[in-house]
């Protein structure tokens, strides 16, 4: 029941922060796939909180561009999952529109949308996993905190990372583990995802999303990785390309800050209008 918060936020706080200790993997490839995903999961623990400014560019098939700007704040919570707050700052007419997510491990996420035009905080449901987030190629599901137990895993193979054209220069000479993961949630918009993970620093540099008909739908790629606080690798640029429609969304991150002193109060429902 989790909905959009953290592929965008995940780029600044980590892909997955709800570490589950019990593996249900059975075969060797399943166990290896799970183990690789666990390393990615653990890599980002302990970041406390993070903030980032983000520019989202939406490209139509013809290349027409629409721009959104947003601020994303994340508060680490190892028990229930990270709380996140996304605030739009551009275009001007939606400045202040905000989405607050309180994940819950054993129940539905709590989500609120703030509409500044009418000063309204609206509690919203979180069923629309496959729907597009603000018209982008990112679905609500893509922006959800990833829990290890939200998927089953399978290790496929290892390949040079430079086989991914967008990462050829940045990852020259590095080896990628390629795993696939299968969503447990029946409402997922995907049948499976194929992840390319740099096996030195556990950076996810590509994800191929397959739709429910098992056809390739979208390709996610991340580049321009920088190291923050000597521990956390984050990309400057993220692209989601829809190979079926030709549309794309590009995210560029600015001013990523860790451990800035955010507290629970900054993620309170009543803080949405602040």
């Amino acid at each position: 029941m989790k909905k959009y918060n953290t592929t965008l936020a995940g780029m600044i706080c980590g892909y997955s922060l709800c570490f589950a200790a019990v593996s249900q993997a059975n075969t060797d490839t399943e166990q290896k796939g799970y183990a690789i995903a666990s390393v990615v999961e653990q890599r980002d623990q302990g970041f406390t909180d993070s903030r980032a400014m983000l520019t989202m560019e939406l490209y139509s098939k013809s290349g027409a561009k629409t721009t959104r700007k947003l601020d994303i704040s994340v508060l680490e919570n190892e028990i229930d999952g990270d709380k996140s707050l996304i605030k739009f700052t551009f275009p001007a007419d939606i400045n202040g529109t905000a989405l607050l997510t309180h994940p819950a491990k054993s129940a539905s996420d709590e989500q609120w949308l703030y509409l500044p035009e009418v000063s309204r905080v609206k509690r919203i449901g979180s069923r629309n996993k496959a729907g597009a987030f603000v018209g982008s190629e990112f679905s609500f599901e893509d922006m959800t905190n990833k829990d290890l137990e939200d998927y089953s895993y399978n290790y496929l193979f290892s390949q040079p990372c430079e086989l991914i054209a967008a990462s050829a220069a940045e990852f020259a000479g590095k080896q990628c583990d390629v795993i696939e993961r299968f969503p447990v949630d029946k409402h997922s918009g995907y049948s499976k995802q194929e992840l390319w993970i740099d096996n030195q620093d556990s950076k996810i540099i590509q994800i191929k999303y397959f739709d429910r008909k098992k056809s390739l739908l979208k390709v996610f790629s991340a580049s321009g990785f920088k190291l923050y606080q000597d521990k956390y690798w984050r990309p400057d640029l993220v692209q989601m390309k829809n190979v079926q429609t030709g549309k794309a969304t590009i995210l560029s991150y600015q001013n990523i800050i860790f451990a800035s002193g955010l507290t629970e109060q900054d993620f309170h429902r009543s803080a949405l209008g602040d």
């Binding site: 939406l58 139509s60 629409t66 597009a132 603000v134 018209g135 549309k247």
Partner: peptide, 9 residues
Amino acid sequence: TKFEFAENA
């Protein structure tokens, strides 16, 4: 009813 189309435009 309310809905959006044309990429939420």
